[in-house]
């Protein structure tokens, strides 16, 4: 009996200690990790989506809340006007969440460009959503208020062959960004106007 108590106590203390240590390290590194991810993963995607922007969209970013969820908004300036934003959203693909960065032209609420940031899709099949520029190019110019769907679901996007689920996830995430954007547009505009 004594032995039993000792086992429980030792394991409990050990796990408690380990949990505490990990939580504090996670807190300590969270900001740095976000910066690194912006630099190495999202940075290139944002740069290609807001291509030709006169400012640095990664530096000109702010966070905005929709209920419980928080979104990072990256602002791009064209012709001296801050009229483009990039917002990231996630949808469940075949191998896990697929992160999609959507650039939006705020003048006519159309899609500037779409890029996949993070994913765990099958290499050679779903991974083409990120690697094949032809697939994401289909989103260009689409009106943000309409939902994006693959042609199988009655939409306008041709799915990647062999990767329907991934294609659906990209459509879903893009649609989500559109909805969030339309809902928060007044707030986003307000934030942008206070930015400079």
């Amino acid at each position: 009996m004594n032995d039993m108590v000792k086992m429980v106590v030792v394991l409990t203390i050990l796990t408690g200690f380990s949990g505490g240590l990990l939580a504090s390290i996670r807190n300590g590194t969270a900001e740095q990790i976000e910066i690194q991810q912006l630099k190495f993963v999202k940075g290139p995607a944002i740069k290609s989506i807001l291509e030709g922007a006169e400012n640095d969209p990664i530096a000109d970013r702010f966070k905005i809340k929709d209920g419980e969820k928080e979104y990072s908004v990256f602002v791009g300036k064209f012709d001296g006007k801050a009229n483009a934003v990039a917002i990231e959203s996630f949808a469940t693909g075949f191998g896990g969440p697929v992160g999609v960065m959507v650039g939006i032209n705020m003048d006519d609420d159309s899609v500037l460009a779409v890029g996949v940031t993070t994913h765990a899709e099958t290499p050679g099949l779903g991974s083409r959503a990120k690697d094949d520029p032809g697939f994401v190019a289909q989103f260009k110019g689409g009106a943000i208020k309409d939902p994006f769907k693959v042609s199988k679901d009655g939409g306008q996007i041709n799915a990647l062959s062999g990767a329907t689920i991934t294609s659906q996830a990209v459509c879903q995430a893009t649609t989500d960004v559109g909805n969030v954007y339309l809902k928060l547009k007044p707030k986003i505009q307000e934030k942008i106007s206070t930015m400079k």
């Binding site: 240590l21 990990l22 390290i25 996670r26 590194t29 740095q32 990790i33 690194q36 991810q37 630099k39 190495f40």
Partner: peptide, 12 residues
């Protein structure tokens, strides 16, 4: 996990 977090933060 400590290594993983630190590596993510400083050697991405």
């Amino acid at each position: 996990t400590v290594v993983e977090l630190v590596m993510q933060a400083y050697a991405y």
